[in-house]
């Protein structure tokens, strides 16, 4: 039996605005296992980010609860790293400064954290760009820094919130390959959010399909295709068709 890292039990989230209460998440039950690459897949505005925020502790569920490694999530913490949609790099810090920021916050010594940061900078393929400022990097490279930064803090679980959403198609394919390469080298529990079906099937160990607001979990797919995956194999296309059929009905 694999170890459960995240357990969500009957998680609901409401937002109260001037126009009344919006029910975003409704009774979501989900377990995420150790070193699993779980993809949350769903249409545009279906509360995927809200769900991630609830797990990361940036939002608190209105009812139900989330535990990570057995601890109830009440606020953000270094055991849960997040890579954001738009790059949330600090523009005033170099690549090195950004990547070593997590360990620095925890008071790790300079030499030790530099070594650690260098390891992850190398891992994401940015060797030689340590002293570059984010404004000089391309979108794909910026997201590599974001991934290295999350890794460097050695979280139990990483949340990637549509990290490749604003990249051009070519870079996006490349980054998907890269993410798998990095993850296979340094296995972590990853929850990856996307609204792109190909991306979901390419990356996932398991896909969880979310419906529109109020979001619930509609279906679950174990993806057993061997890696590296190919977008054009019959198995891939068949899965794609199968999943799209279900999504289309739910929108």
């Amino acid at each position: 039996m694999r170890k459960k890292i995240i357990e969500c039990s009957r998680v609901s989230k409401e937002f109260t605005t001037d126009r009344g209460t919006v029910n975003v998440l409704q009774n979501i039950d989900l377990d995420v296992y150790e070193n699993e690459l779980l993809v949350l897949f769903g249409p545009g505005q279906c509360g995927k980010s809200t769900f991630i925020n609830c797990m990361a502790g940036l939002d608190i569920a209105t009812s139900g609860h989330v535990t990570v490694n057995g601890h109830k999530v009440e606020k953000p913490g270094p055991d849960r790293g997040v890579v954001y949609q738009r790059t949330a790099l600090f523009p005033w810090l170099t690549v090195m400064g950004n990547v070593e920021y997590g360990p620095k916050c925890r008071g790790m010594g300079k030499k030790e954290r530099r070594e650690k940061a260098q390891y992850y900078i190398d891992l994401v393929g940015l060797t030689g760009f340590e002293n570059a400022y984010p404004s000089k990097l391309s979108g794909g490279m910026q997201q590599r820094v974001g991934i290295a930064r999350a890794y460097c803090n050695e979280p139990t679980v990483m949340f990637l919130d549509e990290p490749f959403g604003h990249l051009d198609a070519q870079t996006r394919y490349l980054m998907q390959e890269e993410l798998i390469r990095i993850w296979e080298k340094e296995k972590r529990t990853i929850v990856f959010v996307t609204n792109n079906i190909e991306e979901a099937i390419y990356l996932a160990d398991r896909i969880v399909l979310m419906t529109n607001c109020p979001s619930t979990l509609k279906a679950e797919y174990q993806i057993d295709l061997s890696r590296p995956r190919d977008y054009t194999t019959p198995e891939f296309l068949q899965l794609r068709e199968e999943i799209s059929a279900v999504v289309d009905k739910s929108i």
Partner: peptide, 9 residues
Amino acid sequence: HLWVGQTFG
């Protein structure tokens, strides 16, 4: 940016 700070503790 503040979220990043928070998730890093």
